[in-house]
Design a protein around this nucleic acid. Structure first.
Lengths: 208, 208
DNA sequence: TCCCATAATCGACCAACGGTCGATTATATA
DNA sequence: TATATAATCGACCGTTGGTCGATTATGGGA
């Protein structure tokens, strides 16, 4: 049992890396088992199907990302910063993103979309909490919190996912976030520095 | 030459219908050629690959949708209505949507996503025009128009695509649209009636 | 009308893919 | 040591997207 669980995790990690490196559709079972050095039967002893593997890989990712997000939740950051940090932490870790950037996003649509949907499910309750905290502190002022959070998540994912945006995109993003939550102008302007600061020099800054 | 073009259109229509009915991934070339009653070689005489067929199908859709949108542009509708109508017309036609609803959206992620991206490319310039018209009329007030339009498109697609939204979702959507464009409160509230009116009785109203 | 270039069609064939299955070996427990 | 079961193996399968050389329309010029 111990051994089996270890093997499954090993396969999961290999699949995870290959899915991100070359895309889900472009990764064959044969390649995965070659990398792992096992027979096809062994692979299917652990996974029902390729799709099931993708699902498991995504769950693995979500678990880590939600973990990070919850850690942020417990910090004493100001509410606006906390909100953005939670959103920001709900994505593949830094080093993984480097790999992901090598691959054109359009070549991994399925995985990309499935990840985003799962993230949304997990994130909405967390973010709703933060926004409520903000409202009780008089920083935000709005109703229909959950629906607003969902909308913010959608545009945040589009903005952050590929890292392809201009200063004007960021400006608009900040404005929309503030107005969607009913915050004072400038409340969210720290996002601009966060983004330009977060772009390591080892990444070329993508511009449209 | 004439004959060839007709055949290509015929294949395009068949592929289009099947892609929407059963999803792109779940439709095989064999099924398409069986429906068309031709040999595989003939199919590949007209299309480089399955992917190329999808691309062609999407172009066909976009052409019609953009055509509809441009027709709306030339009407004398009030700017807010015009804006929403353009967005609304930039989606598969009614009868096609009926078919599309039978299929779970998640089963056609690739096509769905590709269509949305192409639509965005075509729609942004059109919508930018409308917003500029609104600004000159004093109805809207904002800068960075193109970026705002892109953002509105993203949330509009998410709202309208599946037709799965509550009254509160619509409420928030209206609010965000107004604030994103710097319109007075209530300017966009007609959207609520438009949506509830647009839901034919033959469709079950999806609620979350 | 005949000829012939080319447009159009055909279907056998292929490699790669995801997936199955019965046989076989390792492991642990009694 | 015996035995159940966990784990591994790889040959095999059906389907898929795609290729190719052969064959049959088609239509315009001599």
């Amino acid at each position: 049992m111990k051994k089996g669980e270890r093997r499954k995790q090993e396969l999961l990690k290999i699949a995870y890396r290959m899915f991100i490196e070359k895309g889900y559709e472009n990764t064959s079972i044969d390649e995965i088992i070659a990398e792992a050095g096992i027979a096809k039967g062994t692979y299917y002893y652990y996974f029902e199907s390729k799709e099931a593997t993708l699902e498991a890989v995504i769950e693995m990712m979500i678990e880590e990302e939600v973990g990070r997000a919850k850690a942020v939740l417990e910090t004493s950051l100001p509410v606006p910063q906390k909100l953005v940090s939670v959103i920001y932490s709900l994505r593949p870790a830094q080093d993984e993103q480097v790999i992901a950037k090598a691959l054109d996003v359009t070549e991994n649509i399925v995985m990309h979309e499935k990840v985003n949907r799962r993230i949304a499910e997990e994130a909405v309750p967390l973010l709703t909490e933060v926004v409520k905290e903000g409202i009780s502190q008089g920083i935000f002022e709005c109703t229909n919190i959950e629906e607003r959070v969902r909308m913010l998540l959608i545009i945040s994912q589009h903005i952050f996912d590929d890292g392809i945006f201009t200063d004007r995109d960021v400006e608009v993003y900040i404005d929309v976030v503030e107005k969607t939550l009913g915050a004072n102008g400038g409340t969210m302007s720290f996002i601009a520095e966060l983004i330009s600061g977060g772009q390591d020099e080892k990444f070329a800054t993508h511009k449209r």
